[in-house]
Design a protein around this nucleic acid. Structure first.
Lengths: 199, 199
DNA sequence: AATATTAGACTGACTGGTCGGTTTAATAAC
DNA sequence: GTTATTAAACCGACCAGTCAGTCTAATATT
C-alpha cells in the first residue's frame, strides 16, 4: 500500500463518517462520498470492494478506539467506586466529543440486529465490557467498597445507564450540561450500591 | 371512511409494522408492503399520501399506546418507590411483548434526529415523561420515602436505565431473563436512593 | 322492486429517476 | 513497470409515486 493510497483511503473514510452520521447509511450515496472526498468513483472501488465495506471498516475503527480508551482508563484506579466515578468524567467528555457521530453508532446498533456479521463484530466487545465491569464489581464487593450486589446485574445497570444517557444526549443536545448530568446520574447510582464503610 | 377502507388501512399498517421492524424503513419497499398485505399499489396511495405517512402513523399509534399504558400504571400507586417498582414489572412485560418492534422504535429515534417534524412528535412526549418522573421523585423526597436527591437527575437516570435495558435486550435476546434482570437492575437503583426510614 | 346514480375504494401497468457497481482507456505517481 | 487514480459512459435493479380506468355498495329515483 503506497502513501498516496493511504491518503485517499483515509479521506474516503473520514467523509463517509461525516455523511453516514448526517444522512444515514442508506441515504448516503457512493457518488456523494466520492464528490465530497475529491476521489473518483473508480478510485473508490479500487480502495473498497463495496459501500458496505466502508461501513464495516468504520465500525472496526470505532471499536478499536473505544477499546484503547477503556484500557487507558482502567489502568489508574485504586478503589472501585472512585475508579468508576473517575471514568465517568472521561465518559462525559467522550460523549460530547463524539456527539456528531452518535447517530452512526446507533446505525451500527441497528444493523447488527439484522446483519449477523455486524452482530458478531459488535456484540463480542459488548460482552467483553459486561464481563469487565462485572469483574470490577465483584472485586469491589470482595474489598467491601461495594455492597453485596449481584455483579452481573450491577454491570448491566451501569452499561444501561451509559447507553441511556447517550441516547438522551443525542435527542436533547442543548439545554443541559450533559457531562455534569452524567456524573450526577452515575454517582447517584454508585452511592446507592457503595459500601457503608466508605460512605 | 367505510368499513372496507378501514380494513385495508389496518392491514397496511400491521404489515408495515412487521416489515419496517424486520428490514428497516429504507429497505422496505412500498411494493412489498402491498404484496404482503394483499393490497394494490393504487389502493395504498389512496389510503396514505406517502410511505413516510405510514411511518408517522405508526409512530403516533405507538406513542398513543405508550401514553395510555403509563396513565394506567400511574393510577394505582401508594408509596413512590414501591409504585415505581411495581411499574417495573409492567416494563419487563412490555419489553418482551414489543421486542420484535424495538428496532422500529430505534428507527423512530434515529429519524427524529434528522427530521424536525418527527423530532417534535417524539421529543414532546419524552420531555413529558422526564417531567412526570421528576414530579414523582419530588413527591417522594417530600414524603421522605426518597433521599434528598435532585428530582430531575433521578428522573433522567430512571429513563436512562429503561432505555439502556431496552437496547441491551434488543442485542442479546436470549440467554437472560430480561424481565427479572430489569426488575433487579431498577431495584438496585431504587434501593440506593430510597429513604432510610423505609429501608 | 327494479333501475340509475354516485362517491369512494381499488387496480396494476407504467414512469421518471436513483443508486450501487462495472468497465475502459488514458494519465500520473512511485 | 507496477500501482494508483481519473473521468465518463454504462448497466441492471429497484423504487416511490402516478394515472386512467374498473369495481362496489349505498342512496336516490322511478
Amino acid at each position: 500500500m503506497q502513501k498516496r493510497s493511504l491518503e485517499t483511503r483515509s479521506r474516503i473514510l473520514s467523509t463517509s463518517l461525516d455523511l453516514f452520521s448526517a444522512l444515514g447509511y442508506e441515504k448516503t450515496g457512493v457518488s456523494l462520498i466520492c464528490e465530497r472526498s475529491s476521489v473518483s468513483k473508480g478510485s473508490f472501488y479500487h480502495q473498497f470492494p463495496s459501500k458496505h465495506a466502508v461501513f464495516t471498516t468504520l465500525l472496526a475503527q470505532w471499536l478499536g478506539d473505544l477499546d484503547r480508551q477503556f484500557d487507558l482508563d482502567f489502568s489508574s484506579a485504586s478503589d472501585v467506586p472512585s475508579g468508576i466515578l473517575a471514568m465517568t468524567g472521561e465518559f462525559g467528555r467522550i460523549m460530547m466529543l463524539s456527539r456528531p457521530y452518535l447517530p452512526l453508532f446507533l446505525e451500527f446498533w441497528l444493523q447488527s440486529i439484522r446483519n449477523p456479521e455486524i452482530w458478531q463484530q459488535t456484540i463480542a466487545p459488548y460482552q467483553n465490557y459486561v464481563d469487565r465491569f462485572a469483574k470490577i464489581f465483584r472485586q469491589g464487593v470482595a474489598e467491601g467498597s461495594i455492597q453485596p450486589v449481584d455483579p452481573d446485574d450491577a454491570s448491566l445497570a451501569l452499561i444501561a445507564l451509559a447507553l441511556g444517557l447517550l441516547l438522551q444526549n443525542m435527542m436533547i443536545p442543548e439545554g443541559r450540561d450533559w457531562p455534569s448530568v452524567s456524573e450526577n446520574v452515575i454517582s447517584l447510582y454508585l452511592n446507592g450500591i457503595k459500601g457503608v464503610s466508605n460512605a
